[in-house]
Structure formats: C-alpha cells, structure tokens
Amino acid sequence: MESRIIMKRRFALTESTKEWLITAIRLVCMFLFLYTAYAKLVDHDRFLKGLSGVHLISGLAVFISWFVPLIEILTFILLLIPYTAKSGLYLFLAMMVVFTGYISGVLLWAKTIPCHCGGVIENLSWTQHLWFNLAFIGLAIIALRLHKSNNQ
C-alpha cells in the first residue's frame, strides 16, 4: 500500500510544470489559429471559392468565409489573456471538434474534396489532416485537465 502511494507521487507533476505545460499548449494553439486566420483573410477569394465548392455548405459559404477566421482571431485573443485562457481553450476545442467533424463529413459524403485550410496545412493529405486535428484536440483536453487539477 505504501509503495503504491510513493509511485503515484513520483509521477505527479509539480504546479510549475503544469503551468508551464498549459502555457506551452496555449501558445501552440494561438500560433495555429492566428496563422490560419491570417492566411484565410489575406487569400479570402480562394478560401471562399473552396467553400463554395463543397455542396454541403455552399449556401453558407460567404458567411462561413468571414465567420471562421474571425472566431479564430477571437480564440487567439481569449488564449492571449491569462484571465480568459480557459474559455479560449474551450472555444479552441469546440472549433477543432467542428473542423474535424467537417473533414469527416467531407471525406464521407462530398463528391470532390477541395482544400482551403490556409497556409502550409493545405499540403497535408486528408488523413494527415484528421490526425493533425485530433492531436490538437488531445492537447486542448490535456491543457484543460491540467487547468482543472491546478485549480483544485
């Protein structure tokens, strides 16, 4: 019994390590969203054209083409301010889940698959893209769990 307790303590992260990990994950998420938001806004015509090519969402293409980068910038701002970082992580997680759902939907139902993700991420294959998104979902979940355990 005693040895079990010792083992648990050995693998427990210190408060400062947890804080460092949360900050690192926040910064990575911030980089990703601002990077892609900027690419979508600078090359907006191409992004809009790509969205219009997907039958499932073509009716909402104009709205989505502005809404997605703006929400990404809002997420960046929320993640930037330490006081709102937790809300930012929740919004980031929600957005990534929606993006992953969209990719899965496009892979399953769309006849043709255009890519309009922004920046170098466009070079990923769709399976790689799916894993990429899942990795970021995992990171956001880890950060939120660490946040929770840090506050306890």
Partner: peptide, 13 residues
Amino acid sequence: VGAMAIGFSSFTT
C-alpha cells in the same frame, strides 16, 4: 507568438 504566426503566414501566402 502572434507576430511569428502572422510572419510565417504572410511568407507562405
């Protein structure tokens, strides 16, 4: 990090 993101993004664009 934000400045770096915009920098890299404009470079690729």
